[in-house]
Write a protein that binds this DNA or RNA. Structure first.
Length: 650
RNA sequence: GGGGGCGUAGCUCAGUUGGAUAGAGCAUCAGCCUUCUAAGCUGAGGGUCACAGGUUCGAUCCCUGUCGCCCCUACCA
């Protein structure tokens, strides 16, 4: 509704201008609500061109603008603003009728790749930020009508998996069968065990540099796909991927397909990409300097400024003939756009409780009915900002191959890392060197085993929430209280990861993350619960909700929404779709979180000021009840985009 | 050295693409529960938007420089 009026206003201003001036007409929200619902600052832009006072231009413009549906009038304010006042009665009446615009559906597919955790240890809070950002962005895109495929890339043949295999095989002297026994042992958390083992192997390398040979041997074995080392690698990666998916499912995060590095290798994706890159001159064989004997991409392809020499080129194929990670990534990115000329085979990996299937790539054909994966028109890679250099190289590769449009549609959805505050390190019992203690934050490190495990944090949040739920609802069944605590924990965690904009480093602090007050997920959930309570209590008292459409005529609505506070609440609630669209355009899920908080805050004030059920005036009560219902619906749909549920009670 | 990001209230952060009197949460202090649940609400204090120039009707936002912090800059991923 609101966005239709905005579009109408822009058209009207353009018509009034009659093409006299070449400027882009924009609208803004007035600083103060008393100035109206919208403001048109166009007179300022025109003042210079026309050499006239902004105020006179504004007056002239208003007199020439055609009638806009839903607008009650204009005011010239300040020294040239055109403030717009909406027809509140008509606006509210259309909302009562449920006349909200539906998003169009698009045929183009968007791929969002997120999570991408090395399958060699338990997930940590940095991975949570990635997955929550990615999952929320997926929900935003789907809400806005876009078709989205969610990929979680599994690097099951890399150094990190190899290091855990080295730990099991060379340090612990375990056979594949013994590793499998550990996985099957329900008294052991295998992903936690690997967390420690990975740190132990890393420190072993530091003390015994020659042991790095074990890693090389393991990497070769994994790539060849035969022998005990490869077998351990396979079972470890398989088990850890399962653990990651379970961890993420606790937060409502699901995937469509798991493309694996092993298939990229076995199906020779790289060979296809290599041919293309050579053929189109995107890479060349270096004959001199430190990169002699390597196939490299010149730095001019991905760095625009001068001052670089041959030494800055990026190695794509090493002098020993093996391909680097970036090379494989170029092949993978080509596949995502359907440009590689080959595809994976697939088999079902697992099924979520709601029936949704996750597929995994395989290197052999099977007899499965499945969706067509890949071949998208745009691709979002949710990867932390430290890898932006490599992402630039991938995009440069696409461009050098002549895939300009796809290069343009390859979006590095980057975000800053989650670090730990020194205080939190102390709480975790981590010894910090003197210089780290004075820093604002300390980077997590898997190699050092330094970090907060995702499941530990989720457990701690549930535990904290449960104490409060038990205190408030002693009469409820334990299983039910547990469920409510889980929903609150999930709301707190998802909101916490989303409230920061992407390029801000999160200095993780337990005290802050465990807070359920103020700008938090539970605050928003609480507002939704309150709204639900009003409606439930009203019905429990034996009264039926009024027939809003007939009771709330335009005149009635016009009268009650003269009250500024009620009108502002309605207006804000009606802007949820616009808030999501703006957040998509900005690529910033934090904006949706902020909107949800603001709406919850506005409702809490309303809740405090109006006793809805006890309202003696029947007409006013109908308005308040409808408003409660409407705000609740908008709040719930926004929470749904954030992946947050409303508990039954709090 | 080069590339990128950041610097806004005591702390943690927003700031809708250059607009009207710069906001929120936390923390501090003072209030509000016989009510649809106080995980809430009201109020107070707290600012040289790092600094210096420039662009223009107008700059927290754009440009230049300076200072400080962070990340990247592997034949690791």
């Amino acid at each position: 509704m609101f966005r239709q009026i905005e579009a109408g206003l822009i058209r009207a201003v353009e018509e009034a201008l009659g093409g006299a001036a070449a400027i882009k007409v924009t609208l803004e929200q007035p600083k103060q609500s008393s100035f109206g619902e919208l403001a048109i600052p166009v007179a300022f832009q025109l003042a210079r061109q026309l050499k006239r006072a902004p105020k006179a231009i504004a007056e002239d413009l208003v007199s020439r603008m055609p009638k806009v549906e839903g607008v009650a009038g204009y005011e010239i304010a300040g020294n040239g603003y055109i403030n717009v006042r909406l027809d509140r009665g008509a606006y509210a009446a259309s909302l009562v009728r449920g006349a909200e615009e539906q998003p169009g559906t698009s045929a183009d597919k968007v791929i969002v790749e997120h999570t991408n955790i090395n399958p060699n240890k338990a997930a940590h809070i940095g991975h949570l930020r990635n997955a929550i950002l990615g999952d929320t962005f997926v929900r935003m895109l789907r809400r806005s009508g876009r078709q989205v495929e969610v990929q979680n890339y599994i690097d099951n043949t890399g150094v990190q998996v190899a290091d855990v295999v080295v730990g099991f095989y060379f340090l612990e002297k375990k056979t594949p069968a013994e590793v499998e026994a550990l996985i099957d042992d329900v008294s052991i958390r295998f992903d936690y065990l690997c967390w420690d083992l990975y740190a132990r192997t890393s420190s072993y390398y530091r003390e015994n540099p020659n042991a790095i040979e074990w890693r090389n041997e393991t990497l070769h074995a994994i790539e060849a796909g035969a022998g005990n080392l490869a077998e351990i690698g396979r079972v470890v990666a398989e088990a850890i991927v399962g653990a990651h998916l379970r961890t993420m499912y606790r937060l409502g995060i699901v995937y469509d397909v798991l493309p694996r590095e092993s298939e990229i290798l076995h199906l020779n994706f790289w060979a296809a990409a290599f041919e293309l890159l050579k053929e189109r001159g995107a890479i060349y064989l270096e004959s001199a300097g430190k990169n002699s004997g390597c196939w490299v991409m010149p730095s001019s392809a991905f760095r625009d400024s001068s001052g670089h020499d041959e030494e800055d080129s990026k190695v794509i194929v090493r002098s020993n003939g093996t391909v680097t990670y970036v090379g494989k990534d170029i092949a993978y990115q080509l596949w995502k756009f359907g440009l590689l000329g080959r595809d994976f085979y697939y088999r079902p990996w697992s099924r979520y409780p709601d029936g949704h299937l996750v597929w995994v790539t395989t290197d052999r054909g099977g007899d499965h009915k499945m969706p067509r994966f890949g071949a998208a028109s745009s691709v979002y890679n949710v990867i932390d900002s430290r890898q932006s250099y490599l992402q630039d190289v991938v995009v440069a590769g696409m461009r050098a191959l002549g895939f300009e449009r796809q290069a343009e549609a390859s979006i590095h959805f980057s975000y800053e890392m989650v670090a730990l505050t020194p205080r939190t390190c102390v709480e975790l019992g981590i010894e910090l060197p003197e210089e780290d203690r004075r820093r604002a934050f300390v980077e997590v490190s898997g190699r050092k085993g330094l970090g907060v495990k995702a499941d530990d944090l989720i457990d701690k949040l549930i535990e904290t929430a449960l104490v409060e739920v038990e205190h408030r609802h002693a009469e409820a069944a334990p299983a039910e209280r547990r469920r409510v605590a889980e929903q609150i924990a999930m709301g707190a965690l998802r909101y916490f990861m989303l409230k920061f904009t992407r390029n801000s480093v999160i200095a993780f602090d337990f005290q802050e993350a465990l807070s359920f007050e103020g700008e938090t997920g539970p605050y928003v959930q609480y507002a939704a619960v309150r709204a639900a309570n009003i409606l439930r209590k009203f019905v429990e008292r034996g009264e039926d909700l009024p027939a809003f459409e007939s009771a709330l005529t335009r005149d009635v609505l016009e009268r009650w929404f003269e009250t500024e506070a009620l009108w502002q609440l309605l207006l804000l609630a009606s802007k949820s779709r616009g808030a999501i669209e703006r957040a998509i355009a900005a690529g910033e899920p934090a904006h949706v979180a902020k909107y949800a908080f603001q709406l919850a805050q506005a409702f809490n004030i309303f809740y405090h000021e109006h006793a809805v059920i006890a309202e003696p005036d029947a007409e006013k009560r109908s308005v308040l009840l409808w408003l409660t219902q409407y705000v609740r619906a908008q709040l719930l749909s926004t929470l749904d985009v954030l992946g947050i549920e409303q508990p039954e009670y709090m």
